[in-house]
Amino acid sequence: MDLSTLLSPDCTRRAVAGSSKKKVLEMIGQLAAPRLSGTTSFDVFESLLNRERLGSTGIGLGVAIPHGRLQSANKPVAILMTLAEPIDFDAIDNQPVDIVFALLVPEEEHEQHLQTLAAVAQRLNDKSCTRALRDAQNDQELYQLFTDDNCG
C-alpha cells in the first residue's frame, strides 16, 4: 500500500509535546481539519474520542492508531506524530505511547478504512520500523521513513 497517498509531509510531526491522550487527539484535529473540507477540528476530535470510548487504539509497543469516520470528510487523511515524551494511552499492553498514526476517512469508505488500518498496524508492529521512526531527526525524515516500503 502506498501510504504517501494518505499521509502528506505537512501532516507529519516529530517530537510533539503532547501531555495527554486528549491533548494529542485535539492536535490531530487541528492538523486534519484544514485538509477535510466542511470538517472542523472539533468534528475530528469528537470522531476520534468516540472511537476511543469503544476501546483504546493503543496497539502496544508504544504505538497508537486513533481513527474515525466522518460524514463531512471528502477524502482519507492521515496524521503521523512522534511524541517528545511517551503518554498514557490506555494501550493494550499498558505501556505509554510515543508513536501516533491517526486515520480519518469518509463515512462510507468502510472497507478502505479497514485495509488501511491493517497496513499501518503491520508497519508499526515492525520493531525496526518503529525504532527508525523514533530516531528520525526531523519531520521530513519521519515522513520519508514511514512512507518508504522498507521502513526501518
Rank of each mutant, 00 (worst) to 15 (best):
L104V: 09
S20D: 13
V100H: 01
N125Q: 14
H67S: 06
G60D: 03
L61P: 07
A73M: 10
L36F: 06
N138E: 07
G55N: 07
E85P: 01
Q95R: 12
A84G: 03
L124A: 00
A121Y: 04
F89N: 02
L25E: 10
G60W: 09
D149V: 11
L7W: 09
D93F: 08
A33L: 04
R134F: 09
F101R: 02
A119Y: 12
C129Y: 08
S37L: 14
I65M: 10
R13N: 02
N125F: 12
N150P: 11
C11Y: 12
D98K: 00
E111Q: 05
T147Q: 09
K22Q: 15
N150A: 11
A17S: 15
K127T: 13
D2P: 09
P34D: 04
I92D: 08
D43A: 02
G68P: 14
M1L: 12
C129A: 07
E111C: 07
V44C: 05
K127F: 09
L54C: 13
L142F: 01
P9C: 06
S20W: 14
Q30T: 07
A84F: 11
I59M: 04
I87S: 10
A17T: 15
T57P: 12
D149S: 15
A17P: 13
A102Q: 01
E52R: 10
N150S: 09
A91R: 10
T12F: 10
T40I: 02
A33T: 01
N50G: 10
L114R: 08
L117P: 00
T40S: 06
L54G: 13
V63M: 11
G58R: 08
L145E: 02
L31G: 01
L142P: 00
P76E: 05
D126T: 07
H67L: 07
G29Q: 03
D126F: 07
A84D: 07
D88K: 10
F89V: 03
S20I: 14
L7N: 04
D139Q: 01
T12I: 02
A102W: 05
R13K: 03
A102Y: 04
L133C: 02
S4Q: 14
S72R: 08
Q137P: 00
Q112T: 12
N138K: 06
F42C: 13
T130P: 02
N94C: 10
K127E: 15
R14P: 02
N94L: 08
L3Y: 08
P86T: 00
D149P: 11
L104G: 04
P34H: 03
D149C: 10
I28G: 09
M27V: 09
R35D: 07
T39Y: 11
A91E: 10
E109I: 05
V63I: 11
Q144W: 14
E111P: 05
N74D: 15
V120D: 09
K21F: 13
L7G: 00
E111L: 09
H113A: 05
L61C: 13
Q140K: 05
K22H: 15
V100R: 01
